[in-house]
């Protein structure tokens, strides 16, 4: 019970940190503080949080273009992330990657990725290395419903299955691949159905219920660590924003949008209710978590703004190590 309380509070904190970071990032982008693409994770916080709550630092994740949440949940530092969004020399990738390419290999974060579906073979390769080196580490591949149509998905699930690799495929089904609805881009409702084709377990769960995600991930990760092979977990969710900042999301039905953003469905509000209901926290506790997150994000912004631009000579470094 104490353990459960601790765990839920910890996950709540992570979700709040993601939400606060993401809200700040979209405002900063709108204010023209940095260029490029920002794909917001707002609304999907429970997934990265619930999955990564079960990981060690030595486990691996492969993230996506919508990657900020995964990075934060895996332990990424907000100041280094923010500096990377700003393209500053102090950022995670010295400003060379930007929002879509943040990586922290020391934390097992094998990068966000600008190529949809590219993370799945890489995560499966990381799992191959874990097994080869006889560690009990696992790898997680995060990807969207859209990515589950790509060949990389099918090849990765098949290979991971026949070789019983310690990888968990986490599909963040937010119903959309840019403007293409799931209904339009695949003839199934549950992406997890595809697990059957590769002879691995597949489950579909509420992607806005952090406890359910954490439980499903715990089981899949245990299975992977034991050497029993991969699992496909589909988390059904909704992205609050457009595909990227600047996309008004006009293709969404406003009724769906309203419903998913309501208190009844919003992942963060749901944890808050749960925490209060179980008497794990009171309103003041929750407010403190939010205030702390804001303080941390403000400091990250300050750090980013005060950091220097990379020197132009940096263009030529980090390629060919001769």
């Amino acid at each position: 019970m104490a353990e459960k309380k601790e765990q839920l509070l910890e996950m709540y904190k992570t979700m709040v940190r993601i939400r606060t970071f993401e809200k700040e990032a979209i405002d900063l982008f709108a204010a023209g503080k940095f260029p490029g693409f920002v794909h917001s994770y707002l609304g999907e916080e429970a997934i990265a949080t619930g999955v990564c709550a079960n990981l060690k630092d030595s486990d691996y994740i492969c993230s996506t273009h919508r990657g900020h949440g995964h990075l934060i949940a895996k332990g990424g530092k907000l100041d280094l992330m923010m500096a990377e969004l700003y393209g500053k020399s102090t950022g995670y990738c010295k400003g060379k990657g930007g929002s879509m390419h943040i990586a922290d290999v020391d934390l097992g974060i094998l990068g966000a990725n600008g190529i949809v579906g590219a993370g799945m073979p890489i995560a499966t390769g990381a799992a191959f290395a874990c097994k080869y080196r006889k560690t009990d580490n696992v790898a997680i591949a995060f990807f969207g419903d859209g990515a589950s149509d790509r060949a990389t998905f099918h090849e990765s699930l098949n290979l991971a299955s026949i070789w019983k690799l310690p990888v968990v495929f986490v599909c963040e089904n937010n119903g959309w691949a840019i403007s293409n609805s799931q209904e339009n881009h695949q003839n199934i409702t549950d992406v997890s159905d595809r697990a059957t084709a590769y002879g691995i377990p597949g489950v579909s769960i509420d992607g806005n219920d952090v406890m359910a995600i954490s439980e499903a991930a715990e089981e899949a990760i245990k299975r992977a660590r034991k050497g029993d092979g991969p699992t496909l977990i589909e988390c059904k969710t909704w992205r609050h924003r457009g595909h990227f900042e600047g996309d008004p999301g006009a293709y969404k039905d406003p009724k769906d949008q309203e419903e998913w953003l309501s208190d009844a469905k919003d992942a963060l509000v749901r944890v808050e209710k749960k925490l209060i209901e179980l008497k794990y926290a009171n309103k003041a506790d929750l407010d403190k978590v939010k205030a702390d997150a804001q303080t941390e994000v403000d400091a990250a912004v300050k750090f980013a703004e005060q950091s220097p631009d990379p020197d132009p000579s940096e263009v030529l470094t980090d390629v060919y190590t001769v």
Partner: peptide, 16 residues
């Protein structure tokens, strides 16, 4: 362009 991938940071991209 130089023989490198394309950097994100505006400071680097403009030099690239």
């Amino acid at each position: 362009a130089p023989d490198t991938p394309i950097p994100f940071s505006p400071a680097l991209e403009q030099a690239y």
